[in-house]
Simulated assay, not measured.
Amino acid sequence: MQNWLTDIMNEFGYMGIMFLIAFENIFPPIPSEVILTFGGFMTTTSKLSIIGVIISATAGSVIGAIVLYIIGLQLDVERLEKIVGRWGHILRITKNDIHKADAWFDKYGPWTVFFCRFVPLIRSLISIPAGMSNMNVSLFLLFTTIGTLIWNIVLVYLGASVGGSWEVIVEYMEIYSRVIYGILFVLVIVLLYLFMKRKK
């Protein structure tokens, strides 16, 4: 994989990084942690600069987020109501639940988008519910860009600072991901339990 990334970054430079990150946001074949830390490492062995890698990676992230946001727009509240109207009795979800969730996202959406940018995998998928709730585009882009920029700066600088040992950062990020997933799993179980208890 290292040779493949090296070839893309050497041949296409910043455009290659932007494409890789945009593609990773929509369909993650390679985690952004790998691309960003390796991109940081490449600044020590090529003409790529840290600022250039950060800017191109951030642009790619925003492009990918916009695509997922548009997908979310196609799954708006009205369409969800139709789905719930047909299958809600099986899922034990009502139209009122949909409206409550939509109202919650309207209230806390911007900060949810921001903080989710630091959670692997979810950092990309959060764009879909943002679109579903018709979150203000300007706010979505602002919080997406800020959160993504911070994430990119940290990982690119780490990749540049450790040089050839960039894979060590990836290993630590895998541990970070597992911890976050574990916390989210427990949180989802608790929320499901409270939801089912309220329904009964």
Score class of each variant (00 low, 15 high):
1 M>H: 10
2 Q>K: 08
3 N>T: 09
3 N>V: 02
4 W>K: 12
4 W>A: 09
5 L>Y: 06
7 D>E: 15
8 I>W: 07
8 I>A: 01
10 N>K: 10
11 E>L: 04
12 F>P: 00
13 G>S: 11
14 Y>D: 05
16 G>M: 03
22 A>T: 08
25 N>S: 15
27 F>S: 12
31 P>Y: 13
33 E>R: 04
33 E>S: 13
36 L>A: 07
37 T>F: 05
37 T>L: 05
44 T>R: 10
44 T>S: 14
46 S>D: 11
48 L>T: 02
50 I>Q: 11
52 G>L: 08
56 S>F: 02
57 A>N: 06
58 T>P: 03
60 G>L: 07
60 G>H: 08
61 S>V: 09
62 V>C: 06
63 I>L: 14
63 I>Y: 03
64 G>F: 07
65 A>S: 15
70 I>F: 13
71 I>C: 13
71 I>S: 08
76 D>M: 04
77 V>H: 11
77 V>S: 10
79 R>E: 10
80 L>R: 05
82 K>I: 04
82 K>E: 12
83 I>A: 13
88 G>R: 11
88 G>P: 08
90 I>E: 13
92 R>I: 05
95 K>W: 01
95 K>S: 06
109 G>V: 09
109 G>C: 11
110 P>A: 10
115 F>H: 01
116 C>H: 00
123 R>F: 01
125 L>N: 08
126 I>M: 06
131 G>L: 11
133 S>A: 15
139 L>C: 06
141 L>S: 04
141 L>M: 12
142 L>Y: 10
142 L>H: 03
144 T>Q: 07
145 T>H: 09
146 I>K: 07
147 G>S: 02
147 G>N: 02
147 G>R: 00
149 L>H: 02
151 W>Q: 06
151 W>V: 00
154 V>R: 09
157 Y>W: 15
160 A>P: 04
162 V>R: 12
168 V>M: 15
168 V>P: 01
175 I>H: 13
179 V>M: 12
179 V>W: 10
180 I>D: 01
184 L>E: 11
184 L>T: 09
185 F>E: 06
189 I>C: 14
192 L>S: 12
194 L>N: 15
198 R>F: 06
198 R>P: 10
199 K>G: 08
200 K>C: 04
